[in-house]
Design a binder for these strands. Structure first.
Length: 911
DNA sequence: GGGTCGCACGACCCG
């Protein structure tokens, strides 16, 4: 009996050797693995022939999987052979992108360089994207001219930023697209082709993912906007198509051999061939080139994929010697040499220039490694796509399953609207998200990337994630192809990670030494003095604006809760504009960016360009949103001439804003941003101002990662206390409510701005009388121990008690809208919101930046505190400082007392 | 997008 898969952790690797067999000489290498993630009995896997190339990159500790191994006995021991039909996959959980395999095949250094500096704004790329879109449209049956017109229009901004005209680009695109059309017409005349465009493929088996331009009768078709008059397609183009073939084979094979089931032919469409002047060129000018896909090519793709996964295991940097590339012919040679020179790396191409200082090299390496760890966390999210057991599925908040398809409609332009009814389950999926829509199995079934248009009859607001009663909610998505909508999955994206890596590269390799001096502590930041008074009733706020206006390098504004941070920021931006500065406004979230714009608007300033997607930008800020389609000149000049440009830091790292320069970057919520995340905005400007509070939420990172969890804001404020101002007067909380946070997190520096703020009480609200409240809730701060018990991440008894407490406030005529409930876990949020459908119940993260008259906090934990309840004391700071007039803490007093900080908190709350 | 090696043409399924 044979097994179809062996998988385990490598514990030993023998030296590869050459042996004589009855069929001649052959290479082999023995690898010992322990199955079950290292817990099983040691087993020998023998790699034969070319698989021994992979043996050279395998290290102990790595995980390997072997498919269809040959099970046999050698010297009395049962072992597995990799040769013949078998396939070796190294680090199967690491998902290698097909375009990365393509780049690595050209040169491993190319793969690395692409990762460091991906975003560039160049005409061939913009044109290539448009041609690809038109190709998709043609496959969906659109008319050529209509498709070209629409796609050129859609790329208006990109074309304009390159200084090109729409007509000229349309002409270029037509040359390419008509070649495609000619070829398509030939095909459809003779046979009824079955086409799929833009097929998303994700392979659990091979640890690979990618998007094929098109699939015809199960075979991959790749579009290339270049020319190729040779008989054979380019090698790396074949490799790309072969990788898709491998994944298509996996889908077709079921439990059988993916290699055997892979399509045997790939097609490459070189669209420029038809446009070549026939007098000058000789050779094969047909756009379509077919090639045969054999097992050797398929295995070559897998081996290359393995080499990448092995390199990424310990974040090594490729030198170029891993393959036989010839540097003298490489068009990236200059970049390659410059990067290796500046980063002091070994490189086959050689190096040019001097290395950056040691501290910058260390910094680069530390953050590069941290960002790659973050990438691996994103990869782990993909595993949710193939979780199949009922427990796993029940626990998966990244998918909506068991949907009932209700219909589909073909839209103009050949796209489809797909509809289904849901079970009302809670998930991370939100309207506007890009998701994987499938017929039930996102990996092996029919699946398409889709956009969520509608989720439920009432659009879920950011604040009511815990709505457990929305049964039979209607779900609407749009996609390129029709399918029975039975499941939606979050589509994990490496976009953010890619942009962090680019920002790191730009900061270390492209910024001037003067700019870097202050970042690396080699020079103190400089300020010119500013006498003008900008805000006359708050000294700290005024000082913050003065500091920002006078900053030659950077300024830091520390804004604790309720201190008028946003108002100060808006005033600061106006002061900078008045000086003639061009300002970039940024923050981690779209919500924060829009809040800033609102504050600017309140102060009468509206000459703003907001860059972002339609679904990301708040309704009332759409009027400022930069139109990216239409007349290229108009789109581009609107951006180029804007004095204030606002975008999230992720957008700042994208190619559009990379074309722009600013005098000052102002970044809000900087305490929530990783260093590279902040750099994405600051590298676009000469100087920067960071505004935030490192005592509130830390940077959002998936991986447990110390390097990324300290913000640039925090590091700079620790190193340069003189470059910062703390806003010390708060306008939100009653004296007693703010007392604990002030003492614990702000050295007692935080004070109420006025006596009125300090003395505010619940009965200041219309019609509310304290005498209608139970005695325990009449103080501004109260502690209630409901004697509940923790069940998983919930505490139902505590939830009941919270429901009673809220009912008390409601019967004392406190409006539901003025009450908020905060819980540490999503499960408890759901538990409480079941009982309180009219009240905002949420986790801390979603409450940051807002406040309520009454806040009730659920601590859930009982008995002991195994894990820090709110993960981090900074989260409890955020929770406590959301309340204006009344704060009720609900939890197990004894359990909380076992922790020093929580213990002091309970003491304070019991008054 | 841009040029150079890489794959592969049969079957052994191995020490």
């Amino acid at each position: 009996m044979s097994v179809d898969r062996v998988r385990g952790v490598v514990v030993d690797i023998e030296e590869p050797k050459t042996v004589n067999t009855q069929y001649g000489e052959s290479d082999l290498c023995e690898v010992t693995i322990r199955p079950d993630r290292g817990a099983g009995e040691p087993t020998t896997v023998t790699l034969w022939g070319k698989w021994t190339e992979n043996a050279a990159v395998i290290e102990t500790g790595m995980e390997i999987a072997v498919y269809n191994p040959d099970e046999r006995e050698y010297q009395g021991e049962q072992q597995y052979s990799v040769g013949g039909d078998a396939t070796l996959v190294v680090q199967p959980d690491f998902l290698v992108d097909v375009t990365d395999i393509r780049a690595w095949v050209q040169c491993p250094r190319m793969y690395y360089l692409r990762k460091l500096d991906g975003a560039e704004h160049a005409y061939p790329l913009v044109k290539g994207t448009i041609v690809h879109e038109v190709f998709g449209d043609l496959l969906r049956g659109r008319e050529l001219d209509a498709a070209i017109g629409e796609q050129v229009d859609a790329a208006g901004l990109d074309i304009g930023l390159l200084g090109r005209e729409a007509d000229e680009v349309a002409g270029d695109v037509r040359d390419h697209a008509s070649a495609i059309q000619g070829w398509l017409q030939q095909g459809t005349l003779t046979e009824t082709d079955q086409w799929r465009s833009e097929m998303t493929l994700i392979s659990e088996r091979f640890g690979m993912k990618g998007r094929a331009d098109a699939v015809r009768r199960g075979m991959p078709v790749e579009l290339k906007t270049g020319k190729n008059t040779k008989r054979e397609p380019r090698f790396q183009d074949k490799i790309q198509a072969t990788a898709y073939a491998l994944m298509l084979g996996e889908r077709a094979a079921g439990a059988g051999s993916a290699v055997d089931a892979a399509p045997d032919t790939g097609t490459l469409l070189y669209t420029k061939n038809a446009a070549v002047d026939r007098n000058e060129e000789s050779g094969d000018l047909s756009p379509a080139k077919e090639f045969s896909i054999g097992s050797g090519l398929l295995n070559y793709v897998v081996r290359t994929r393995n080499a990448i996964a092995a390199m990424e295991y310990d974040c090594s940097v490729p030198t170029g010697y891993e393959a036989n590339a010839k540097c003298e012919y490489c068009f990236e040679q200059d970049t390659c040499m410059a990067v290796s020179g500046r980063l002091d790396q070994e490189s086959k191409a050689g190096t040019v220039g001097r290395a950056v200082p040691d501290e910058e090299l260390d910094y680069f390496e530390r953050f590069y490694t941290a960002v790659e760890a973050e990438r691996r966390s994103v990869h782990r999210e993909y595993t949710k796509l193939w979780e199949q057991t009922p427990e796993e599925r029940a626990d998966n908040d990244r998918a909506l399953i068991d949907l009932e398809p209700t219909g589909r409609t073909e839209l103009d332009g050949g796209r489809w609207e797909l509809r289904a009814t849901g079970t009302g389950a809670v998930s991370k999926i939100r309207e506007g998200n890009l998701v994987l829509a499938s017929d039930g199995d996102p990996v092996t079934g029919n699946a398409e990337l889709a956009r969520v248009e509608r989720l439920g009859n009432e659009a879920p607001r950011a604040s009511d994630s815990g709505n457990g009663d929305a049964v039979n909610a209607e779900i609407v998505v749009t996609a390129d192809e029709p399918l029975d909508l039975r499941r939606l999955d979050v589509y994990p994206s490496e976009l953010t990670t890619d942009r962090l890596q680019n920002a790191l590269h730009d900061a270390v390799l492209l910024q001037s030494p003067e700019q870097k001096d202050v970042l690396f502590g080699r020079r103190e930041p400089e300020f010119s003095s500013v006498d003008e008074t900008f805000i006359d009733n708050n000294d700290a706020q005024n000082e913050a604006v003065q500091l920002a206006v006078g900053a030659e390098d950077f300024a830091l504004v520390h804004g604790p809760p309720g201190t008028g941070k946003t108002y100060t920021l808006a005033r600061m931006v106006r002061a900078l504009i008045a000086r003639g500065d061009r300002v970039l406004l940024s923050a981690f979230t779209n919500r924060a960016v829009d809040n800033l714009l609102e504050a600017l608007e309140d102060q009468g300033y509206t000459d703003i360009v907001r860059v972002g997607t339609e679904s990301g930008v708040r309704e009332d800020m759409q009027k400022y949103r930069l139109e990216t389609s239409g007349d290229p000149g108009e789109c581009a000049s609107r951006l180029q001439s804007a004095q204030v440009v606002a975008a999230t830091t992720a957008t700042c790292g994208g190619s559009t804003l990379q074309t722009q320069e600013f005098d000052v970057a102002v970044v809000d919520e900087a305490g929530q941003l990783t260093e590279p995340g902040t750099l994405a905005a600051t590298t676009l400007a000469d100087r920067f101002v960071l505004v935030g509070d490192h005592q509130q939420l830390p940077p959002v990172v998936q991986s447990e990662n110390e390097t990324l969890s300290t913000s640039l804001f925090e590091r700079l404020i620790d190193d340069n206390p003189d470059a910062g101002v703390m806003l010390d007067r708060q306008y939100r909380m009653a004296q007693h409510i703010q007392a604990f946070a002030s003492r614990e997190f702000y050295d007692g520096q935080l004070r109420p701005a006025t006596g009125e703020v300090a003395a505010q009480r619940l009965d200041d609200l219309d019609g509310v009388s304290l005498s209608n409240l139970p005695e325990g809730l009449r103080d501004r701060v109260a502690f209630v121990d409901p004697d509940g018990s923790q069940v998983g991440n919930t505490n139902p008894i505590e939830a009941d008690r919270i429901s009673d407490i809220v009912a008390s406030y409601r019967s004392a005529r406190v409006p539901a809208d003025d009450i908020g409930v905060i819980a540490p876990y999503r499960a408890q949020v759901a538990e409480i919101s079941k009982r309180l459908p009219d009240v905002t119940v949420d986790t801390v993260d979603r409450f940051q930046g807002s406040s309520k008259e009454v806040i009730v906090i659920s601590f859930v934990a009982t008995g002991t505190l195994d894990s820090p309840i709110f993960e981090d004391y900074r989260r409890i700071n955020v929770a406590l400082t959301r309340a204006k007039k009344a704060l009720v803490l609900v939890g197990d007093g004894d359990a909380l007392a076992t922790d020093e900080v929580y213990g002091r908190m309970v003491e304070w709350a019991r008054g």
